[in-house]
Amino acid sequence: MISVRNLRKSFNGREVLKDVSFDVWPGEMLALIGPSGCGKSTTLKLITGLLEPDDGEIVLNSKEIGLVFQGSALLNSLTVRENLALALRERKLPKREQDRIIMEDLTLVGLADYVDSFPTQLSGGQQKRTSFARAIVNDPKIVLYDEPTTGLDPVMSTIIEDYMIELENQLHAAGIVVTHQFSTWTRTAHRAILMHDGVIVWEGKPDDAMRSSNPYIVQFAKATKDGPMLTGTI
């Protein structure tokens, strides 16, 4: 599970996160949603350890974290196989066992034929799926997605969301997805947290978002310009 308590973080004197707390349980997918610059990506970077919090506490029940980057972030100098092997290298497995895991993993995302291709020879969607395969190759108990569908066409978005749901069912991991795509958080998440200006302004089930009386979530879900968010800042 992931447990976050009273997280604070500022960059160059600007407070990006002001007192954020939440928990994610095994088997649950939490969506962190909100407009650009609300602090959701910073929260994700703090959980992965890429950034250090100014104050607060993050407790993870497992060191094994799978992270799917927005831009795939595959190493261009390595083949698909070598990219996955990199994630496995701390386990020091025999070569045959390592190859077996890699092939099994790639079959799951439908890319077994591309095991010896370089990332630049793959399409955008294939790169994304490879980065999924890399994130889950160690059977992590925590899986994090950074804007997994941003910049993809609607059909590809649906395919990626389907993979997320399938992986969720198989791994039974604690998941967080950072997104502002409506279909992504309503389809994949069990629970959503809306952030605005470094604080949590709404928490609930995606299905309840449209019916809520909270002005923030209503504005965000309906994508209207009337509401408490972004007024006067454009």
Binding site: L50, L67, A87, R134
Partner: peptide, 16 residues
């Protein structure tokens, strides 16, 4: 370029 495309971050997440 690797830094901008988060490849360096990916290494760090894999504890490399």
């Amino acid at each position: 370029t690797m830094n901008i495309s988060e490849q360096i971050d990916a290494l760090k997440v894999m504890r490399i």
